[in-house]
Design a protein around this nucleic acid. Structure first.
Lengths: 207, 207
DNA sequence: GCCTAATCTGTCAGATCCTGTCAACTATGG
DNA sequence: CCATAGTTGACAGGATCTGACAGATTAGGC
């Protein structure tokens, strides 16, 4: 089905296996129902009943209804941080970030169809977009010290936050465009397009 | 249909005056209490009781608790759109956007202290930051056609969205930094710093 | 000044989301 | 087999937000 990341921890016993399975079921049902009726028109009770669990159990798997659609993006953020950390010190930050995001796209791989549906629901629901950006704030906090250390000159933290937020905008817009029905270009290509619009200053602000 | 109501720029009757006054009172109380205890630790009931109204009336003035702190940013967005629309066609988009944001800073003017408190609460509450970005999405929708028309080459909409989101990131980060306790630089200066980090590509993507 | 209509407010009721608690159930390990 | 720990369902409760209705306040016309 889907090869999971070994980095986090692979399920040890029957408990962890069933837990991951239930988690995926909830997420799938949440995306499906939201795609049909719209996210706001679907209640937690609806999702839980479709899966076959109680509403209370739903919240034991996901803290909020939004998270059932968004999934847990923390491991992905960690992956980005990891890639950035292992890049050569003299590599320009924009190129460095683009490489990291491309690595993230590689992880998607097999989940294309599922991911597109998810992104479509995400793009059509304001509260989901908000929650998604909230998670990006955690990415920013993780990446800021790494990026700041790579920047020459002054105000490195301020400038690092600016670059990271801008790159996340590139990421979001590229993915949202990729998920559109009529879009045929690859996610990597779209990501390159958005990055190209902002990254020309690879020589640094002083150049 | 919509030609009747221009905007509540100037209250016409006693009703509108009192309504604006109550609205400001609610907003002030919401910011004050949130600054003291934290936004999540303040209930709508607390705010309403402090102002002297019922919780139901609170929701007649603000649809959500977040909006009481954030206020209505729609008129700000319209101002930005207006400034951008009146700029010369051959002006680079980044310079154009920076001018528009600076005009926005000029509008703040007298509200410095109040605005700083508001921004501090905003920066310390993830859900508020997310809601704020959600409002920026409306700005993006408003500005995208204007900016896209100014871009040469292909994929103008995709690139316009990227630039707008990036510029909004500059705006947010500059304001958040400006509101910090130890910060002494002006908001305009900080805005120039963040813009300088991304705007070097004023010659366009092909250069 | 008075009356009618529009608007605002408070109160009540309800839907939904989310959390705490507790007893019953199940897998794991000795 | 049994003890422990994790999971679940059921109930209760707080909080946000909305709809409905009745009373109060205000605006405009007489």
């Amino acid at each position: 089905m889907h090869a999971m990341v070994e980095k986090t921890r692979q399920p040890k016993g029957l408990r962890d296996i069933t837990r991951d399975a239930v988690r995926n079921s909830i997420s799938d049902v949440a995306v499906d129902l939201s795609a049909e009726r719209g996210f706001d028109a679907v209640t937690v009770e609806d999702i839980a009943q479709t899966v076959g669990i109680s509403a209370r159990s739903f919240h034991r798997y996901f803290p909020a209804k939004e998270d059932a659609v968004l999934g847990d993006s923390t491991p992905w953020g960690e992956l980005v941080r990891e890639v950035v950390a292992t890049r050569p010190d003299d590599e320009p930050v924009w190129q460095c970030l683009q490489t990291a995001y491309e690595a993230l796209l590689g992880q998607f791989g097999e989940l294309d169809a599922r991911m597109k549906r998810r992104l479509r629901v995400l793009g059509s629901t304001p509260s989901l977009r908000a929650r998604n950006m909230e998670k990006h704030l955690q990415w920013e906090a993780m990446l800021t010290p790494l990026i700041a250390a790579r920047l020459p000159g002054q105000n490195t933290t301020l400038r690092a936050r600016t670059i990271i937020q801008a790159s996340l905008a590139c990421w979001d817009i590229a993915l949202a465009t990729w998920a559109e029905e009529s879009e045929t270009r690859s996610a990597g290509h779209l990501l390159a397009l958005t990055f190209a619009e902002l990254s020309p200053n690879t020589a640094g602000p002083g150049a």
